[in-house]
Nucleic acid binder design. Structure first.
Length: 426
RNA sequence: GCGGUCGUGGCGAAGUGGUUAACGCACCGGAUUGUGGUUCCGGCAUUCGUGGGUUCAAUCCCCACCGGUCGCCCCA
């Protein structure tokens, strides 16, 4: 037997309804916040991610699905959404549109070659938004509030919003130098990973789990003390907007994002729920002024976030939250005898054209078994058509909740059912 | 990519180097002819992730691979 590839999953009936529900929620919220959908290709030129996400990141160095096509182009299945959206923004000259900032959302599969485990797949679905063309701290808060609102409206309670600022170019350089200076004397005492980090990305040393207890960690310089006046003022305003929106947060100066393009505001939403294992991050995002330029566009500030739909559903499960999904069927038709079966095909067709959900048996089941099937499908009404009914041009209708059964003239069935379903729906 | 652990029917889960691989749920059929969700009876794995090897004999022993899961790395 051929199995699905490692790290991918089949979403089957029973689960897809949940996906549809949360996807509908995303779209509804984006409508409220006035974000519009953008759809970009699932693969792009590899160079886009090398330049956009960053050559030194883990994503680019060891996690991309890269391949040559038959025309010798080097292509990559997208590992994240922002680079593509920005590419499209630049290519389609969306910076020239009348309404700025451009507020966009996307939803779709992303691909990363990693060792799979609970909460981590090689193909996973991200929902994300990007606001391009505004350096107003209010929009940072808007992006964060949209992210939080999704979880809130779906009923999640155990959430933690962590924010930080990575500062601007100058802040980062000063901080970086301070970090290197601070840790260099202790280099030999740090773990091997940190020794590499110190050279490549000293920021990452800060959230090392092995060296957490090292005395130098406690006294390490914080980005917050190296912010330029502008960067500090910006962060203060973002926090003020969050306060005014009554969004609680925790400032973690060690919060680092794994993608190179971030600066200023960075944030993560995590779950506190039991049984979440090593994966606790539900969503991550931040500001990326400079990315549009990097990808060949005009100087344009940007901010966005992305969440994993899989992890969102895991969080719902961890908190035992049932989504309000209506999987009941309006009606089910049971036929007895050959003539009745022929008539049933016509009837089912009529009902469907009238917008009534209906199904019937296609397995030659006995009367009783057809009833069982109707019950399992949670049919609200069962229509029974046999020789007797046919002879009188009538049909029996049983309300499965109340058990009541009435006899209706066949020509009246559509109007009768339509009315009953309307009533029963309340 | 590294380390640990696990892999028996649709699901959950016993089990043993050797004639018929427990059990529960689900499913299918029946309990006098056309009425479900309860009960009772019956049925339902030539087969124990895949491929090799050891053995007279392996689902149970060994190896490899595949896959899940946990931790690390990193992230969504």
């Amino acid at each position: 037997m051929i199995h699905l590839p490692r790290g991918t999953q089949d979403l089957l009936p029973g689960t897809t309804e949940k996906w549809q529900h949360v996807e509908a929620k995303f779209i509804e919220l984006c409508r409220n916040f006035n974000y519009q959908e953008i759809r970009t290709p699932i693969f792009e030129h590899t160079e886009l991610f090398q330049r956009g996400v960053g050559d030194t990141t883990d994503i680019v160095q060891k996690e991309m699905y890269t391949f040559q096509d038959r025309g010798d182009r080097t292509l990559t299945l997208r590992p994240e959404g922002t680079a593509s959206v920005v590419r499209s923004f630049v290519q389609n000259k969306l910076f020239g549109q009348a309404n700025q900032p451009q507020k966009l959302f996307y939803i779709g599969p992303m691909f990363r070659y990693e060792r799979p485990q609970q909460g981590r797949w090689r193909q996973f679905v991200q929902f994300g938004i990007e606001a391009l063309g505004s350096a107003d701290p209010a929009i940072d808060a808007e992006v964060i509030s949209l992210a939080m609102e999704i979880y809130k409206q779906l009923g999640l309670r155990s959430l933690k919003l962590v924010i930080n600022t990575l500062g601007d170019q100058t802040s980062r350089e000063n901080h970086r130098n301070a970090l290197v200076e601070h840790f260099e004397p202790h280099k030999e005492e740090l773990c091997s990973d940190c020794q590499v980090r110190l050279a490549q990305n000293p920021l990452r040393v800060l959230d090392c789990k092995k060296d957490r207890e090292h005395p130098a960690m406690k006294t390490a310089p914080s980005i917050l003390s190296y912010l330029t006046e502008e960067a500090d003022a910006y962060f203060t305003k973002v926090k003020a907007f969050l306060d005014i929106m009554d969004i609680s947060y925790h400032v973690d100066p060690n919060l680092v994002r794994g993608l190179d393009y971030y600066n200023h505001t960075a944030f993560e939403i995590m779950s506190d729920a039991e049984g979440f294992g090593a994966i606790t991050t539900l969503a991550g995002g931040g500001r990326y002024n400079g990315l549009v330029e990097e990808l060949g566009g005009p100087e344009t500030p940007g901010i966005g976030f992305a969440l994993s739909v899989e992890r969102l559903l895991m969080a719902l499960e961890a908190e035992n939250i049932e989504l309000p999904i209506d999987d009941a069927l309006d009606s089910y038709v049971i036929a007895m005898g050959e003539k009745a079966e022929l008539k049933t095909a016509e009837l089912v067709n009529q009902l469907r054209q009238a917008g009534i959900q209906v199904d019937k048996d296609y397995q030659g089941k006995k009367f009783k078994a057809q009833f069982k099937a109707a019950d399992r499908l949670k049919a609200k009404f069962v229509l029974i058509l046999g020789e007797n009914e046919l002879a009188e041009n009538k049909i029996e209708i049983k309300n499965m909740q109340t058990g009541e059964q009435v006899s209706i003239s066949l020509p009246d069935i559509v109007s009768y059912l339509t009315e009953q379903i309307k009533k029963g729906g309340q």
